[in-house]
Nucleic acid binder design. Structure first.
Lengths: 168, 168
DNA sequence: AGAGGATAGTTAGACTCCGAACTATCAGAC
DNA sequence: GTCTGATAGTTCGGAGTCTAACTATCCTCT
């Protein structure tokens, strides 16, 4: 299984070693693999969403609401912060989801600048169905690593995330 | 150092455990951290490019040409495949880079459907300056991991990449 | 040599996202 | 109580990418 072959990142590193042997490549390879893996994983999970008529971004909003627990309500700015995107972008995502009947905006009794964004019954049913398929799908994607490898990968990612976040 | 605190992904997993204890979350956490790390890393490297008037995508094209070695020439379809994007998108990136004087399109003597995309002298100078800064920057970003941790992270990413790519 | 299918690049239109500007509302200082 | 700065959401215009359709060229098979 695995290991043996060279991949696109190996080729990139070998080219750099040949052209610029002075460079410190200790980070470049990891960065390249993270970026590439992120793109490939996105492509691997989208078909599950698409079968239910959802895009990744819409799924992300529905899951944020679903996992927040009853009454499945969040305000737009909390959603945009959780999903690391602009408020303007969230406005249009919510427009789409509301038009599809999956979420509902209602007045926030405590803050008249804001809204409550709630899952509709249809939205709740869709997200519950999709999240089960999604979890099974991604469990398969990481099944090539044994539990120990998964945990050490997860720990390394957590350490990196923490370190990089502190830098800005 | 590190480890101690909970991060956004831990919160997400805890919410799911509370709301849907039936789900297998063995992949969801890793997927979430990879996506988040990819986004955060993108934000951490962009300032280096921006100081030289470049966007990430433009930098990617220049480095692909630079590391290919003399005569620093590739054809557009090779670039679009290496950078995992559509040919249409590459057309417009090359338009921008050519307008900025960093690359030059010329006729491909061997294939009249295609072009040679070459680094100009200005493009060569820019990419050589930026790649050095970039390498130093990312070496700092991964410096929170010791060499052994880096290597095991890299190996896990490679295994995952290989496995996910084979699935599609 | 000629036909048919594959490939290279571009164009057109749609989509998603972002930053900046704007309105409405909140919250603290005086 | 009122003023002032911060915050919530939206709108607008622009940037970057994608897919589909199109033209030109190449390559293979007969």
């Amino acid at each position: 299984m695995d290991a043996g072959g060279f991949d696109a990142v190996d080729v990139m590193l070998e080219q750099w070693r040949s052209e610029r042997p002075d460079l410190d490549l200790s980070g470049v390879g990891i960065l390249g693999r993270v970026a590439q893996l992120s793109a490939v994983l996105a492509g691997a999970v989208e078909p599950v969403f698409a079968r239910h008529g959802l895009r990744s971004g819409e799924f992300d909003v529905l899951t944020a609401l679903r996992r927040s627990g009853p009454p499945y309500v969040l305000i737009p700015s909390a959603l945009s912060e959780t999903l690391m995107m602009s408020r303007a972008g969230m406005t249009s995502r919510l427009d789409r989801l509301e038009a599809a009947g999956l979420v509902r905006r209602s007045l926030d009794p405590d803050d008249r600048r804001s809204f409550h964004v709630a899952l509709t019954e249809a939205g709740h049913e869709v997200v519950d169905a999709v999240i089960a398929e999604h979890a099974t799908n991604v469990a398969g994607l990481v099944s090539c690593l044994d539990p120990g490898q998964r945990q050490s990968l997860d720990q390394a990612l957590r350490t990196l995330l923490d370190h990089v976040a502190k830098r800005q």
